[in-house]
């Protein structure tokens, strides 16, 4: 999906550059011709005609802007759930996976279930029990089973 959005944005930028270049060329050409004309016949052209862009350049600019917008919109990441139950369900269902970007790093503001602290309760942590449990886990060969 990303390459589509990137190529569309690139195409739009190309159009925009082309339109800008055309507009610049047009105005440069117009001013030189107007200047040379006025130097030849300064009395006849008392009011210089207003330089208006040709319609194709205007159309190209507008099309380019819309193409760039389309490309950027296509390239946005997936929207976050805004309903509480959907968001909570996503945390429960997918864990860290659901909140990581495409290159595998977990979002900075991801905290998992924010209410889990009410059950783990870091303020009342029983460190001796945890140490005992950990020692038991090691004795049962948890470390080797995990490593192998």
């Amino acid at each position: 999906m990303t390459w589509i959005s990137k190529s569309v944005t690139g195409l739009g930028l190309l159009f925009l550059t082309h339109a800008c270049y055309s507009a610049h060329e047009h105005s440069a050409l117009h001013s030189t011709t107007a200047a040379s004309l006025s130097s030849i016949a300064s009395h006849t052209a008392a009011v210089p005609t207003v330089a208006s862009l040709p319609i194709d350049i205007s159309i190209e600019t507008i099309v380019a802007v819309f193409t760039i917008c389309l490309g950027l919109v296509l390239g946005t990441p997936e929207l976050r759930p805004i309903q509480w139950r959907v968001w909570a369900g996503k945390i429960e269902r997918e864990g860290e996976k659901g909140f990581s970007s495409s290159d595998g790093t977990v979002d900075k503001d991801y905290v998992g279930n924010p209410f889990r602290v009410l059950e783990s309760r870091p303020g009342f942590i029983d460190i001796r029990k945890q140490r005992k449990e950990f020692a038991e886990w090691v004795r049962e060969g948890g470390g080797t089973a995990e490593a192998s």
């Binding site: 977990v106 602290v117 783990s120 449990e133 950990f134 090691v138 470390g143 995990e146």
Partner: peptide, 18 residues
């Protein structure tokens, strides 16, 4: 680092060991 920034009480023993 993501697991370091949250209280570790609920982490499985293998992660704590790591």
């Amino acid at each position: 680092s993501s697991s370091l920034s949250h209280p570790p009480a609920h982490l499985p023993p293998s992660v704590a060991l790591q």
